[in-house]
């Protein structure tokens, strides 16, 4: 990429950022209650303060770890179940209503119930799992049974053995599916994790820090944590893009 191309790629996000900050500042000026709507430089100052604290990085790391754990758990279980469901119509019919119910559960009620059953460290992971799993499972099953119906037919005609389907064919298809949907499901998982952390008062987490900021009416601090969370999201998505790139270069996965 030459200089001009780099410039063009950067110019749009910069314009968007400037626009956003301008609107923010105008609103803050109009409302002029800095305790409720701080100015963006106040938020940046708070963020700067946070960057010098070790506990900041620890909290980010812990929240990221929980996000990845929840996502991983959901992916593995959805993957395994989806493969069985694609192969066997009975499994599919049993799982369908369960997954539909899980998908319709309101996140907040799940969190409130889970507060009774789980320890505060595990709770966010459990809730994230419940939110991500139905989405992943549905995507996987649809990909296999609907988008690839003709491939499945081909396998039936060529009598491709079950072991080959389960260990070679389906995993390859699902890996490419996973690479595509991670972009939308990972940020969702992060959001749910933070919400769970807030309600569970999880030690060493982004959520509990947000909760404390709210309790102590430190609105600028709360917004600074929010900004940190958004940046974390971008970092995670960049990581996913990197993984995709590596898979493509090593010829493991075409997408």
């Amino acid at each position: 990429m030459n200089k001009k191309q780099i410039l063009i790629t950067l110019i749009y996000p910069i314009v968007a950022l400037v626009l956003f900050v301008t609107i923010w500042t105008l609103c803050a000026l109009a409302y002029s209650k800095p305790l409720i709507l701080p100015y963006f430089w106040e938020v940046l100052a708070e963020l700067w303060k946070l960057l010098s604290q070790g506990s900041f990085y620890l909290a980010l790391l812990a929240t990221t770890a929980r996000t990845l754990l929840g996502f991983l758990l959901a992916t593995i279980i959805a993957w395994v179940l989806a493969q069985f469901a694609a192969d066997n119509v009975h499994v599919r019919k049993v799982l369908n209503p369960i997954v539909t119910v899980l998908r319709s559960l309101p996140t907040m009620s799940v969190i409130l119930l889970a507060l009774i059953w789980f320890r505060s460290g595990i709770l966010p992971v459990f809730v994230a799992f419940l939110v991500a799993f139905p989405l992943l499972y549905s995507s996987f099953v649809l990909r296999l049974t609907q988008d690839n119906a003709d491939i499945l037919e081909m396998c039936a005609v060529f009598k491709v053995p079950c072991r080959v389907r389960m260990f070679k064919l389906y995993p390859s298809i699902l890996l490419s599916t996973l690479m595509r949907i991670t972009d939308s499901i990972l940020p969702l998982t992060l959001k749910v994790i933070v919400a769970g952390e807030v309600l569970a008062n999880t030690v060493n987490s982004v959520g509990v820090n947000m909760q404390n900021a709210r309790l102590n009416v430190e609105t600028a601090n709360l917004l600074a944590w929010t900004v940190a969370c958004v940046v974390l999201c971008f970092v995670l998505q960049a990581l996913v893009a990197l993984v995709r790139y590596i898979l493509r270069r090593t010829n493991v996965c075409p997408q």
Partner: peptide, 14 residues
């Protein structure tokens, strides 16, 4: 969240 000996463990609820 869980009891530890020799210490008062405080678990917070909303």
């Amino acid at each position: 969240d869980v009891a530890q000996s020799g210490v008062v463990t405080i678990r917070y609820y909303t």
